[in-house]
Amino acid sequence: MNTGQMSLRLLVDKWLAPTPAMPVRVTRFGRTSANHKRYVRVEALRSTGLLAILFFRHDDGSWCVFPPSIESGRPAMRVY
């Protein structure tokens, strides 16, 4: 995967389309409790109300709007 296409800045531009009249701001960041992966919450105030999106950092360095899967501790079935 080309991580340049999934940078946090590009995703914020894609999902929130900030402008000088409607800026975005980071309101929370940290690590998830389940697998200690990084996340960032970004908010934008729109005419329809507050829009907030969580972005999650994946192992390949990309940012996505869905959390990375938790490999350990997840029930799994395998056929040998």
Results as ranks from 00 to 15, higher is better:
Met1Ile: 11
Met1Lys: 11
Asn2Pro: 14
Asn2Phe: 13
Asn2Thr: 08
Thr3Arg: 15
Ser7Leu: 04
Ser7Ala: 05
Leu10Phe: 04
Leu11Ala: 03
Lys14Ile: 05
Trp15Thr: 09
Leu16Ser: 04
Leu16Glu: 06
Ala17Arg: 14
Thr19Val: 02
Pro20Phe: 03
Met22Phe: 15
Met22Glu: 15
Pro23Cys: 07
Pro23Gln: 07
Pro23Asn: 07
Pro23Thr: 07
Val24Met: 03
Val24Gly: 02
Val24Phe: 06
Arg25Glu: 15
Val26Lys: 14
Thr27Ile: 12
Thr27Val: 14
Thr27Phe: 05
Thr27Asp: 06
Thr32Asp: 02
Ala34Ile: 10
Asn35Ser: 07
Asn35Met: 05
His36Val: 02
His36Ala: 11
Lys37Gln: 13
Arg38Trp: 05
Arg38Pro: 01
Tyr39Lys: 00
Tyr39Asp: 01
Arg41Ala: 11
Arg41Val: 15
Arg41Pro: 00
Val42Asp: 01
Glu43Asn: 07
Glu43His: 10
Glu43Cys: 13
Ala44Thr: 08
Ala44Lys: 15
Ala44Gly: 13
Leu45Lys: 09
Ser47Ile: 01
Leu50Tyr: 02
Leu50Cys: 07
Leu50Ile: 02
Leu51Val: 13
Ile53His: 06
Leu54His: 12
Phe55Glu: 03
Phe56Trp: 14
Phe56Met: 02
Phe56Val: 03
Arg57Met: 08
Arg57Tyr: 05
His58Lys: 03
Asp60Glu: 11
Gly61Ser: 12
Ser62Arg: 06
Trp63Val: 02
Trp63Met: 01
Cys64Phe: 08
Val65Cys: 12
Phe66Asn: 11
Pro67Lys: 00
Pro67Glu: 07
Pro67Thr: 05
Pro68Asn: 06
Ser69Thr: 10
Glu71Met: 08
Ser72Asn: 12
Ser72Trp: 09
Gly73His: 08
Gly73Val: 05
Pro75Phe: 13
Arg78Gly: 11
Val79Arg: 12
Val79Ile: 13
Tyr80Arg: 12
